[in-house]
């Protein structure tokens, strides 16, 4: 149907304008946050001045030099990268085993992994916290990293992807005399790059933004991750919040996940499609 009817044109115009209005609603709070981070005024004035102004970069300088911000950035980066690397690697090993390797009890083990998804996090936080106390891990990196090194979601996502790779590819490798783990590392894993990318992106963003668990186990200011630091900034000056410095800290916290989103945008939908298809 190549003929363009007036109805079509009207629909397209309507769609585009609704899209633009929504984008405007969604961008304004963030836009305001960014322009505020380049201003002097500590106190908010009403109505807010929404015109872009570049008065100072002092808020960024302050946040970076006069708080533990670089340290918090390092903590967040270290934790998020470790969690991502471990969880994606372990998820792919197990996902591959559940998709391709034959061993006794495989199905029961797989359903056990899925069943852990039914247990909501609040049910285990008390026990997990006490476990951390008993291990002496409170206020350490491993308290945040180790419990997140395996994820049922990543196992499931990787398994779904490995089942879509044609069996023949691996059979050929088997005939060539490769052992099962060699087939995984040399043949299957390199073919699963989109699945690795999707699960790495979601895991990293989740770990970077995680709040409740780090709040429970990281107590000293030096150990804070960025979300804890943001919360700390909010309470640090009594009821008076230094909005401008705060907004600079917020912008700096958001940058990595926004960059990841912009660069890997196509994997966001793909990741969900992978885990949703073929139940």
């Amino acid at each position: 149907m190549s003929r363009i009817s007036p109805r079509r044109v009207a629909l397209l115009a309507l769609t585009v304008s609704v899209q633009l209005i929504l984008a405007l609603i969604y961008i304004i709070p963030f836009y305001w946050m960014v322009i505020k981070s380049f201003r002097f005024t500590i106190f908010a004035n009403f109505p807010p001045n929404l015109l872009p102004t570049l008065q100072t970069v002092g808020n960024y300088v302050y946040v970076w030099h006069f708080s533990a911000f670089p340290h918090w950035y390092l903590n967040s980066t270290l934790i998020a990268l470790s969690v991502t690397a471990a969880s994606v690697f372990i998820g792919s090993l197990s996902g591959y085993a559940f998709a391709r390797l034959r061993f006794r009890g495989r199905d029961i083990l797989f359903y056990t992994v899925l069943a852990t998804l039914m247990i909501p996090f609040p049910v285990v936080i008390i026990a997990e916290y006490i476990l951390m106390v008993n291990l002496g891990w409170v206020n350490t990196y491993q308290a945040v990293i180790v419990p997140s090194t395996a994820s049922a979601v990543n196992v499931f996502l990787m398994r779904q992807y490995f089942t879509t790779i044609p069996q023949e590819v691996e059979d050929a490798a088997k005939i060539d005399g490769l052992r099962p783990h060699q087939i995984f590392f040399r043949v299957a894993a390199p073919l699963a790059k989109p699945a690795y990318a999707a699960s790495a992106i979601y895991t990293f963003i989740g770990a970077w933004n995680s709040f409740l668990w780090p709040l429970l186990v990281l107590h000293s200011v030096k150990m804070f991750t960025l979300p804890l630091a943001i919360n700390f900034f909010k309470g640090a000056n009594g009821s008076q919040i230094y909005w401008n410095q705060m907004t600079a800290a917020e912008v700096l916290t958001m940058i990595p996940t926004i960059v990841i989103y912009v660069v890997f945008e196509k994997y966001f939908v793909k990741g969900i499609a992978l885990s949703g298809s073929k139940g």
Partner: peptide, 27 residues
């Protein structure tokens, strides 16, 4: 192949076993 299978799922079971299954019972 069986052995590889068990080794590949072992890390997942160690972590989920301790921090989800055991933790739920412990709770």
């Amino acid at each position: 192949e069986q052995l590889t299978g068990y080794l590949f799922v072992l890390p997942t079971f160690l972590i989920l076993g301790v921090f989800v299954l055991f933790a739920a019972v412990y709770s």
